Amino acid sequence: MQELIIAPLVPGNGGGINNVLQKVVVAYDKENIESENGKNSQAGAENSTPYPGLSRLTPSLILCGAAAVVPAYMDKLGVSCVINVAPELPDTPLSSVMNPLYLRVNAQDRSEVDLAKHFDEVADLIEEVRLNGGVSLIHCVAGVSRSASLCLAYLIKHAGMSLREAYTHVQSIRPQVRPNSGFFQQLRRYEQQLRGSCSVEMVYFASLDKEIPDILEPQYRAMEDFYQRYRSSLRKR
């Protein structure tokens, strides 16, 4: 793999691409999501909802961030189980009409956190709800890392998907998903445990000086390109 190293925006700031990417990632995601939404506008109704921020991954599983959790929406979507993966947030506002099951998962969004200990519990609950004709809604703060990782674990265990297939499926519906590298490592081990092989490799990414999942490499390279354009636009001001 060819190494691509980008100098810091401001000489001597000590941050380099690692810090600058964090500053431009929101803008990159906005641009990328708008582009992907255009590509996916013809997706089937089973993979969409009429409510902003709610991503239907399967007919019985919805992924979102905390801001999109609205009891009236949950009623209309028939949500019968809510999983909150953000211990830093208060309890999720629940519908008094549907009176859904409610599970809190205590997991911070840090790569060293053991999220894998919750994989089976959450995956089996989502599947039980599906078998009973219900719909599960899972969220963290942004619906990008923690809750997305648990959705991937569910798809690996109960939908017969590899990790690569599961991520590709989820990302096609919710382009901003990006589990942290520690969660991806745990998902790789989970796939190995369940399927006897691993479909995602970790590769060294020089600009960040760390390993990332190979399936995320195109996104990181695109962010580097976005950063270059961002830096160029600042120089023209």
Rank of each mutant, 00 (worst) to 15 (best):
H169N: 13
A159S: 15
S199I: 02
Y154F: 05
T92D: 06
D225E: 14
E217S: 14
V122Q: 00
L163H: 05
S95F: 05
S95M: 05
P213M: 07
Y167S: 04
S147A: 10
R130E: 02
R189Q: 12
V200W: 00
E224K: 15
R130G: 00
L187W: 02
D225H: 12
E224M: 15
Y204M: 05
K157R: 14
S162K: 07
L216Y: 13
K210H: 04
I126N: 00
G143M: 12
I156M: 08
R130L: 00
C140L: 13
Y154V: 01
S136K: 00
Y227R: 15
H139C: 11
A166W: 04
R188F: 02
M98A: 09
L131V: 12
P93Y: 00
K117M: 06
P213W: 04
N99V: 07
V141K: 13
D109G: 10
L94Y: 02
V203K: 03
Q108A: 10
H158G: 07
Q186L: 05
Q185H: 09
T168Y: 05
Y204C: 06
L125F: 01
F183K: 09
V177T: 11
C140N: 10
V203M: 02
Q193S: 14
R195W: 05
E165M: 07
L152A: 03
R104Y: 07
Y204F: 15
R189M: 10
F183P: 13
E121V: 13
R174P: 13
S95K: 08
D109N: 15
D114Q: 09
M223V: 15
S207V: 14
R110C: 08
K157F: 03
G134R: 00
M223K: 15
E112A: 08
